[in-house]
Amino acid sequence: MNAYEKVRTARSSDRPTALAYINNIFSSFIEFHGDRRAKDDGAIVSGIASLNGMPVTVIAIEKGRTAAERTMRNFGSASPEGYRKALRLMKQAEKFGRPVITFVDTSGAFCGIEAEERGEGEAIAVNLMEMMDLNVPILSVLIGEGGSGGALALAVADRVWMLENAVYSVISPEGCASILFKDSKKAKEAAECLKLTAEDALSFGLIERIIDENALGTEEFFNRLASEIEKEILSIKEDRDYKENRYRRFRAF
């Protein structure tokens, strides 16, 4: 698959969305709503759950599957309130010593008038700062699209994993093509230039692992991923200096 085919695969509506991961990997997930400031952003699903008996906080960007769901989820583009809800849940996780697991799937943070008025930039900025300093292990899995700052705002983690057909990019290939090549139809070329595939990210050392998509969406797939996540969280926990190492992880880029 070339880079742009990967982009289209990552965006495909056939892929399992974040809720499928939450429902199949964890048990007794309890969703917690709202940023306690202004509203509850449907693009972010968050709550607490059990990972094989270990209490964890789960935060995800959900795109929705049906037309009605997609509208409710704003197509997986989070507003400032969504990032603030995520931060509230992360600080709660820190208080109770729960590891944080995030699932990222977004074309980017929402670009709207209200989002600007309520500080989309500020909300992302504060998340970056606070995640860098959070005193519990963080694992992020990019399951589809990793769209720029809107994805990074949930991916400042001790380990970042990508599904083999997920993409992670500073700008959409279409946006890059229209700005740099003055032609949005050159998205295919832009996708190649941006080096946005999981293999690229791994080769630059920007992620730790690529998740095999064999049997994607099946019980077997989720069970395999669940045990990998559990193992990894335990291994981060064993490292007393994980917060320092998280700083070093990003400091190296």
């Binding site: 970056l128 700062m129 720029s148 992670y168 500073v170 700008i171 890059c176 941006l194 630059f204 400091r251």
Partner: peptide, 21 residues
Amino acid sequence: ARMQEGLISLMQMAKVSGAVK
């Protein structure tokens, strides 16, 4: 971000934020 540097440029946001914190 400087898109000619791809994902590395995005990571600068997290890197600087860590130092600010």
